[in-house]
Each structure stands twice: as C-alpha cells, then as structure tokens.
Amino acid sequence: MSAQGSEFQKMIKELARRTGKPTQDAQAKKLGVSDTSLAAYLAGTQIPREKTLARMLDAVGIPPQEHTNYLMIRKTADILPYEHANGQELQLLPSAEEGLPAESPVVRRLPRGRFPLWAWGVALIPLGVFVWGGFTLLTSLLPASPATAVVASPPPPALRQCSLVNVLSSPVYVEIGDAEPVKSKVLGDRVRTLPVPRRTGPDGSSYQAVALPNRRDSPNGVGWMRAADLRPDPRQCADPSRRP
C-alpha cells in the first residue's frame, strides 16, 4: 500500500481509537458500520463512501467544519492507482454499508486487452460497406456480357389441307403427261394437297399437286392428280407423314 493508502488506514485507526471501545466489534457498532467493513477499512482493501465516512466522523464527535481534511484523505485513497497482482489490476470496492453484501469480494479483477464482440461488429461494418461499394463499382465498369441468344424452337408443322377423291378411281402421276400413273386413288380416299399452283396437262385438264410421302413413288415427294377428281375436305391433315 502506498503512503496515501497508509494515511487512510491511519485515519481509520484514529477514528476507531476515538470510539473508546476496547474491541473491534464495539468500535464498528459505535461508528455505525459492520465489523467486516471496519476490518476492511483498517486493512485498506475497502473505502467507505463520503456519507459513510461523515457518519463515522459524527459518531466520534468530530465537528463538521473539520470533515474536509478527513474527506480529502478518503478521496486521495479512492483515486490511488490500481495495484497490480499477477498481471491483473485490482480496484477497491465500496463497503457493505454502501449497497453491497458483506460477503462481497474485496477486489474485482479487470481483464486487460479484451475487445468486446459487439465492438468487433461495429468495427467491421465500415469494412463491409467498403467491400460492397468496391464490388458494385467494379461490376459497373466491366463490359456487359453479350446476351445469350435465345433459339426459338421451330413451330409445329402447319396443318395441311386435304381433299377427298370423289370419283371411283383417280390416277396419280409423278409428272404431268406420264404414260402410266405411279398409283391410283379410289372414291373416298384422302389426299394431302400441296400449296403449289395448279398446272394444265396435255389433255387440257387442270392438275393439283399432292403429297407422295413414299420416296419410291416420287423422288421429290410430289405427285399430280386431276383437280376435277378432288373435292376439298373440311378437315385438315395434321400428320404430314401420313400417306395420302
């Protein structure tokens, strides 16, 4: 304990002596504090509050005008630098009469060099804002990637117009004017007509292009029938692979 601490202890011993009581228990009772608190005051491990010290001074008959000197000694001891023990700092605690239980520890260890977690969070906020701002700026400066070409799927095959054979038998030619037909259609057969302009044959008849899906019948898949042998079918040919 420093010289100021020793002076504080001497002051407490003087107050205890002025009580005129032989035992520490009786002295504490006279001073209006507990035996435990008086022992701590005498040892210099606790410091009473100013109002507690003023009450002790009144108990031994010290006039109020003389309280200032005693209070200054108490204040000097209260602001003493913390003592060091095992690398930890010790802080004097107020006594039991000042709101703490008598069995409270005499000293409180103050950890060194510890940074609270909430302080870390506050410190990292500006860093996060800086990183996010830099990322946003970088992405704004980079050239935009070319748009991915969207390849549209081909539309479904258009529905083809069909016609019905309205005669007992109608020949189908690969070329208009052929001597022999490649096949014949009978009454009620459906044929798929092609969007090709009609042609006039050597016999003066108008011929309609029809589909011949079998390549053995026509290399280009087209045949010709007399337009007069066909009548429009209100239905449509949805399946282009179906033979006419």
Rank of each mutant, 00 (worst) to 15 (best):
D58G: 11
G121C: 12
L110M: 13
P63N: 11
P48Q: 03
T139E: 15
K29I: 11
Y41D: 05
E89D: 10
L53H: 09
I125A: 11
W118L: 15
S140D: 14
N69G: 12
V122L: 15
L127P: 11
V60T: 06
R109K: 13
A102M: 06
P116G: 15
L57G: 07
P105G: 11
A144M: 14
G128S: 15
F115H: 12
L92P: 00
G134N: 13
G121S: 13
A123C: 05
G99E: 02
G61W: 08
D58E: 13
P143L: 12
H67E: 01
P64I: 13
G99I: 00
E50N: 07
L117P: 07
E103I: 08
L137Q: 11
L138V: 09
A96H: 06
R55P: 03
Q91F: 03
K30C: 11
W132V: 15
M56Y: 02
I62T: 05
P146S: 13
R49N: 04
G44F: 03
Y41T: 06
N86R: 04
Q46T: 10
P94V: 01
S37Q: 12
V33F: 05
V122T: 14
P146L: 11
V129A: 13
D35S: 15
L80R: 01
L42D: 08
T139S: 14
G133K: 10
I47Y: 03
E103H: 09
T68W: 05
V60I: 08
V107P: 10
D58H: 06
G32H: 14
R114L: 10
L92Q: 03
V107Q: 12
G121I: 11
T76W: 04
R109T: 15
P111T: 11
Q27A: 12
R114P: 04
L80D: 01
F115W: 10
P101S: 03
A43K: 06
Y70E: 00
A147W: 06
L141P: 14
A102N: 08
T68M: 02
I47N: 01
A54S: 15
T36M: 12
L57K: 07
P48C: 04
Q27M: 08
L57A: 09
P111L: 09
R49K: 10
H84M: 08
V129T: 10
G113C: 09
P64V: 14
